[in-house]
Design a protein around this nucleic acid. Structure first.
Length: 886
DNA sequence: GTGTTCACG
DNA sequence: ACGTACGTGAACACC
């Protein structure tokens, strides 16, 4: 047994440390896990580093220890365990159980004392120990056989102390640390020590006299104040030393063998990590386990799954000649479903395809060099992908459509998209990469880089279909999935591929103009500042404004001065430089993000801009747009709005048609809350903000001023976002008390809305999630946070998501139907953009009247609510010129 | 990679 | 007592 290292861990200390080091973290169902997570990472790391043969974790047990018998105020000032930490202790114990690590706790003793007893026992057996803790008191246990690993910053940095290091750091021996503490005391444990003696003096005295007892005995040698203190407080000093001393004579740990560590029960550990949603940890464990396994001869074998108790391998057949193609084709033809995985990017074309059916996985290489030509392989792939009668399973089918487009293949039979399904099941998770989804739902780690990776992906997609389709039905999202999201995939692909025509000449002109404007603004700003600096740097700008020019600091960020637009507007009166900076900011934004940002993304052949719509990003169900983002093209400010002039119809004579829902979110609120006033206003077709003003300010509609209407409008927005008086007051620039009155006034008049908000939050708390009209779901773990700010955020999300999400449901339904109708009628019109509540079409002149009617009707009737949906139609020669049409 | 700012609905 | 409206993507500076 000697030679083995004994690792003794202070469970309480590390749990607290982990709790504070890891920001709030919880499972999708709201179970707090930050301390468990931090503890686990730390534990795995040190076990891996030290590879101990024996391990024990000690916990405090029972509130009263022998130290209270001696001193009733012991630890009186220490705060109790935080509410969010306490429930994590059972999880920690469960973790240690699955790690097969022995837990030690004894009534009436602190973890410290147990640790002391254990290491002392180990020393008797001549076993080296290492103590892991965040508590410096453990340093007194350091000896030739015992070291201490002390947590430094965070959870991963540890300092190792042996005797030499203690001497170096404190100038005294480990045993003398308790004498030292007898003098100095410890505020956190409420150990008094000797008042007036600090670290410096204590250190000097102990070095000179060797121990506290010796010092007290020879106190007459001392002089002045210290002598008087030692006389007066000598009992207190001795008591302090006793309190600080770790008791080593607890009758535990005679049999060291009970701490022998055999390594974790991996199956149980994976199950626990899965329950706690520790995905990174699952992956690292699976990776570690999967090392060193190789395939067999003949059928290529690939161990991409290591789940639970046993490894699981999957073989695949490479299609590399006419005969293997023929036999594969025969099997594929009869397959009920075919999972597809493609390799290659949008530009360079396909490199390989993998197909998985029940019983067989095929790899189809497409880079030649084998007994099958690329053309023959692609021809077969086209037979499968181009035939709507096959039931194809994909992960991110839209991306596959782009990959296949490069080979002239249109993907037809999309039967299931695992990425979209995973999104609906939990839209809040950070990534929908196949690797992540497979890990979560199949508990497998997909290989990467090797040839076998693609067959593994196809098989994962096939298996995921089973899991996810089940989940979609169980959560009542089948209609949303099969009738909205899945058909939308092809609609979005069509939109992306169509692209938007851009006026490159105008773009270049704008770039030059903006460049000149920025130049002259820069010169003016630099001369007013009296020096050259980078205006784009908030740090440098902050220095100029608040230090050099001494302007008042309005707001701070966590790293320095805030210079955002709100701050600058407030400073605009103080110095003429400020307005110039604001304008400079605006121009730089327009030039870099839009004008110059587009250029590299425009297809040089066609002059088309192809955005990517992401269907799996937002937590609410909205789409997002990227590379470039065409959902945030300026409109509010005239200078920016001009950018819209570069967006043209794709052919001369075509027209841009824009259709946007009027007040869709407030209408949804009216429907969901059934508030009589709100419903009535919409049914009558009233000006909703004016009506709100009339209700809140208690005046007749005719008496509503512009200002009143503006404020009411802000209140209406606020209601949707989860209003606070603070936010409203900031937005409309009235005192907070006044904002508060508006909100109260609103809820007084619109009782139905108030009830709806209360109801939705209560329901969310009960179920852990909220839903939209089409049953789209969002889990809200924040609702159960003990942090007030986080919890309030959860509550606002609870009320906003059903509204924003239902609006997303509605426009998505409209898109699917409009696209279907365009195809059925054989129209040449193209849907080109969606901007949350707006659809934009590129319409040939001869289809204009038909499309106007079609779009308006389909959008307004996408979903029947208790209030009408109203769509405003605009048209023009470019996106800037669009004007309201009847 | 993070923080700040700002464009949109 | 707390910090503050919901949802995005992109550019830039700076570590």
């Amino acid at each position: 047994m000697p030679g083995d290292l004994f690792m003794v861990i202070d469970g309480n200390s590390l749990a607290h440390r982990a709790f504070h080091a890891i920001p709030a973290l919880s499972t999708s169902k709201g179970v707090q896990t930050n301390a468990v997570y931090g503890f686990t990472t730390m534990l795995l790391k040190i076990l891996d580093e030290k590879k101990p043969g024996l391990v024990a974790v000690c916990f405090d047990k029972g509130k009263i220890t022998f130290r209270h018998d001696h001193y009733s105020d012991y630890k009186a000032h220490r705060k109790g365990t935080p509410d969010d930490l306490r429930p994590q202790f059972p999880l920690l114990k469960k973790l240690l159980e699955t790690m097969r690590i022995t837990i030690l706790e004894e009534d009436g003793y602190e973890a410290d004392d147990l640790i002391g007893a254990l290491t002392t026992a180990a020393e008797k057996h001549n076993i080296s120990s290492v103590i892991v803790t965040g508590d410096r008191d453990a340093l007194q246990l350091v000896s030739p056989l015992t070291r201490v690993l002390l947590t430094k910053k965070g959870i991963t940095e540890l300092d190792e102390y042996d005797e030499g290091k203690v001497w170096e750091k404190y100038g005294i021996s480990p045993e003398q640390l308790i004498d030292f503490k007898g003098l100095v005391g410890d505020a956190s444990d409420n150990i008094p020590g000797v008042p007036g003696i600090g670290e410096k003096t204590a250190s000097k005295l102990i070095k000179e006299y060797g121990s506290l007892e010796e010092l007290i005995e020879k106190r007459n040698d001392l002089t002045g104040k210290i002598r008087a203190k030692m006389e007066e407080f000598r009992e207190q000093a001795l008591l302090s030393k006793k309190l600080a001393t770790i008791i080593r004579e607890i009758p535990v740990a005679q049999d060291m063998d009970r701490f022998r560590w055999q390594g974790p029960d991996y199956a149980e550990l994976l199950a626990l990590f899965s329950e706690l949603e520790f995905k990174t940890l699952i992956r690292s464990i699976l990776n570690r386990q999967g090392e060193g396994k190789k395939g067999k001869k003949g059928v290529a074998k690939n161990d991409f799954e290591v789940a639970g108790a046993g490894a699981y391998t999957v073989g695949y057949i490479t299609i590399d000649d006419e005969s293997s193609l023929k036999s594969a084709a025969a099997k594929i033809k009869d397959a009920a479903k075919i999972a597809l995985a493609l390799e290659g990017d949008r530009k360079s074309g396909l490199k390989a395809a993998a197909l998985s059916i029940a019983g067989n996985i095929f790899l189809l290489p497409l880079e030649g060099g084998r007994g099958l030509s690329r053309a023959a392989a692609l021809a077969w792939l086209k037979e499968i992908c181009g035939d709507p009668d096959f039931r194809l399973l994909c992960h991110n089918a839209k991306e596959d459509m782009w990959r296949l487009k490069a080979e002239g293949i249109k993907l037809e039979g999309i039967f299931f998209d695992t990425m979209i399904a995973a999104y609906l099941l939990n839209p809040a998770t950070s990534s929908r990469e196949l690797t992540e989804v497979a890990l979560e739902y199949l508990k497998i780690v997909l290989p990467s880089g090797i040839e076998a990776a693609l067959p593994a992906r196809a098989e994962a997609v096939r298996r995921l279909h089973g899991e996810l389709s089940h989940g979609i039905e169980e959560t009542g999202m089948d209609r949303l999935y099969y009738e909205v999201e899945l058909p939308l995939v092809t609609v979005l692909a069509e939109m992306e591929m169509t692209g938007v025509k851009v006026d490159r000449d105008r773009l270049n002109e704008m770039s030059l103009e903006l460049g000149e404007k920025i130049q002259s603004l820069s010169a003016a700003i630099h001369s007013m500042a009296g020096e050259e600096f980078n205006i784009n740097s908030t740090k440098q700008l902050g220095y100029i404004l608040f230090e050099r020019l001494q302007l008042p600091v309005i707001k701070r960020t966590k790293t320095g001065y805030s210079t955002d637009a709100a701050v600058l507007e407030e400073l605009a009166g103080s110095h003429e430089i400020v307005a110039q900076v604001l304008e400079h900011r605006q121009m730089v934004k327009l030039k870099s993000t839009y004008v110059d940002g587009f250029s590299p993304l425009i297809d040089p052949e066609t002059g088309l801009l192809h955005t990517t719509f992401h269907q799996d990003v937002t937590a609410t169900g909205r789409l997002s747009s990227a590379e470039p983002n065409l959902q945030n093209i300026p409109i509010k400010m005239e200078e920016g709005r001009k950018i819209r002039k570069v967006f043209l119809p794709r052919r001369e004579g075509n027209i841009i048609l824009s259709a946007d829902y009027s007040q869709i979110e407030l209408r949804i609120l009216a429907h969901m809350s059934a508030d009589p006033l709100l419903v009535e206003a919409f049914r009558k077709g009233e000006d909703i903000h004016a009506r709100t003003a009339s209700e809140v300010f208690g005046v007749r509609m005719e008496q509503v001023t512009r200002e009143m209407r503006g404020r009411a409008k802000a209140v209406n927005f606020g209601i949707i976002y989860g209003i606070s008086d603070f936010g409203l007051s900031r937005d409309i620039k009235v005192p907070r008390r006044e904002a508060k009155l508006y909100i109260e006034g609103y809820f007084n008049r619109y009782r139905g809305v108030k009830n709806y908000i209360d109801r939705i939050v209560a329901e969310a708390r009960e179920k852990g999630y909220v839903t939209t009209l089409l049953n789209r779901r969002r889990y809200l773990p924040d609702l159960f946070s003990s942090n007030h700010t986080v919890r309030s955020f959860g509550e606002r999300t609870a009320m906003n998501t059903p509204i924003q999400g239902t609006a997303a449901d509605i426009i998505k339904m409209a898109m699917v139907r409009i696209q279907r109708e365009i195809v059925e009628r054989g129209l040449a019109t193209k849907m080109i953009l969606q901007v949350h509540d707006e659809l934009i079409f590129d319409v040939p002149l001869e289809e204009f009247e038909e499309m106007k009617e079609l779009v308006k009707t389909r959008m307004e009737n996408a979903l029947a609510l208790d209030v009408p949906l109203v769509v405003d139609m605009k048209a023009g020669q470019n996106w800037y010129e669009v004007k309201v049409i009847k």
